[in-house]
Each structure stands twice: as structure tokens, then as C-alpha cells.
């Protein structure tokens, strides 16, 4: 088991966002987290990624009890073991593609220039966009930007990839390519949790968890 949430509660200004959410994610799965806007999907992803510490309940991710970790330990976990992909790509426009991909290296183990370049090339090669290594985000299409964002998430060779609406800003064809990419990465052993409201993305997952009004409404798939 890679991650386990037990009775997670989360409020925003007195309004409950997550109510008694419990779920598990096994190593090697692609799990989709589906539900309408405001159902708490992204909040759950942030809790799993250690970005949101203000919740009640027990969250265990990659063997870490998140409630027991301080800010620095959570940052280290995000740097070494978790990759994030966002709907709006979140690339830093003033950096090159290579610099964006290598962004985690600033906060992790020291790498020499050659090793850094090798890792950047490998990550970009995995997402099929190595030829854009010296380009700028402004020169890329939406699909290419998302591939760069995925390469950045893969840079530290994480065990868990958390993707928040990764196809939300892409046309359907480009979105399909991203889904295929996720499937390829999963076949290579990467565990992926995708937050989505798109049916086609959900179908590509080995398991789908539906959230409604902050509760787990249903869980379908192999480990359900």
C-alpha cells in the first residue's frame, strides 16, 4: 500500500469540504478521483501531497504519517518521492524548459551539471519532447507545456505522481496523448492519482473513486 487515508475531515471557513474520507492507493495503480467541481477532489490531492496540513484524520503516504511531519520533512518528501502535475501547467515563464524541469534540483540532493543535464534529458525523453530542452515555455503549445510539467514531476524519479485535471486545458486529442503517456509511465512502475472530471480519463485508470459533497460516494475498479 502506497497511501492510506483514514477518516479525513477538512473545513474551509466552517464549511466542510471533506467528510470522513477513507481510501487506499496501492503501488502500481492509476487511480482516478472523479466528482463535480467543489466535491473536494483537489483538496484531497493536496492532502496526499503534503501541501495541505490543516485536516483531521490520519494520512499515511509512502510510509510517512503526514500529521507527524514538520514543514521541512514534508518539503523533502515532495521533493524526493512525489511529483505534481497541474491543470494550468504552472511552468515558470522566465526559465527555459531545462531550468523548469530541473527546478526540484534546487531543493534536493546536489547534482553536478552533467548529471543534472542527463536527468533533464531523460525526463524530457520519457515525455517525448527532448528537442525542446532549450526552448521557453512561451514557445510551446498547451500539450507540450503539460509534457514539460510532467517531465518536471518525473525529474526526481518519484514513487507517486499526483495530477490535478492534467487534461483540463487541452483539446481532446492532446488530452488523449497525455492519458497515453500516464499509462506508459504507470506500466514503467509509477503510481498515479489523477483528479479529473473527464470520463475518458477516468476510464483509463485502473480504479476510480467518486467524491460527492466531500464524501466517497463510490469506488470502482480492481482494488475497490
Amino acid at each position: 500500500m502506497l497511501a492510506r487515508l483514514d477518516s479525513i475531515h477538512k473545513d474551509y471557513g466552517g464549511q466542510p469540504v471533506l467528510r470522513d474520507v477513507s481510501l487506499t492507493i496501492d503501488a502500481g495503480e492509476i487511480v482516478s478521483l472523479v466528482g463535480r467541481s467543489g466535491s473536494g477532489k483537489s483538496t484531497l490531492l493536496h492532502i496526499l501531497g503534503g501541501l495541505d496540513r490543516r485536516f483531521r484524520g490520519r494520512a499515511e503516504v509512502l510510509g510517512h504519517d503526514l500529521a507527524q511531519m514538520d514543514d521541512r520533512a514534508l518539503a523533502e518528501m515532495r521533493n524526493r518521492e512525489i511529483g505534481f502535475v497541474f491543470q494550468s501547467f504552472n511552468l515558470l515563464e522566465h526559465l527555459t524548459v531545462a531550468q523548469n524541469v530541473a527546478l526540484p534540483s534546487h531543493f534536493g540532493v546536489r547534482l553536478d551539471e552533467a548529471e543534472m543535464r542527463r536527468r533533464v534529458e531523460r525526463a524530457l525523453d520519457r515525455v517525448g519532447i527532448v528537442e525542446k530542452i532549450d526552448g521557453r515555455p512561451g514557445e510551446l503549445s498547451g500539450g507540450q507545456k503539460q509534457r514539460v510539467a510532467i517531465a518536471r514531476a518525473l525529474f526526481s524519479q518519484p514513487k507517486l505522481l499526483l495530477a490535478d485535471e492534467p487534461t483540463g486545458n487541452l483539446d481532446s486529442e492532446t488530452g488523449d496523448h497525455i492519458i497515453e503517456l500516464f499509462q506508459t509511465l504507470n506500466r514503467d512502475g509509477l503510481t498515479i492519482l489523477v483528479v479529473t472530471h473527464e470520463e475518458r480519463v477516468s476510464k483509463a485508470a485502473s480504479r476510480a473513486i467518486r467524491l460527492e459533497d466531500g464524501r466517497v460516494a463510490s469506488a470502482l475498479g480492481a482494488s475497490a
Binding site: G49, L51, D71, R72, L74, A75, E76, R78, N79, R80, F84, N90, L92, L103, P104, H106, F107, G108, R152, S156
Partner: peptide, 14 residues
């Protein structure tokens, strides 16, 4: 951007 840096491993003190 600060959120992105936090997601790739920056701590609050960083």
C-alpha cells in the same frame, strides 16, 4: 510561483 516551488520541494524557510 511560490506554490509551484513548494510543490517541487521548497520549504517555508527556503
Amino acid at each position: 510561483e511560490i506554490g509551484v516551488l513548494r510543490s517541487v520541494g521548497a520549504s517555508a524557510s527556503d
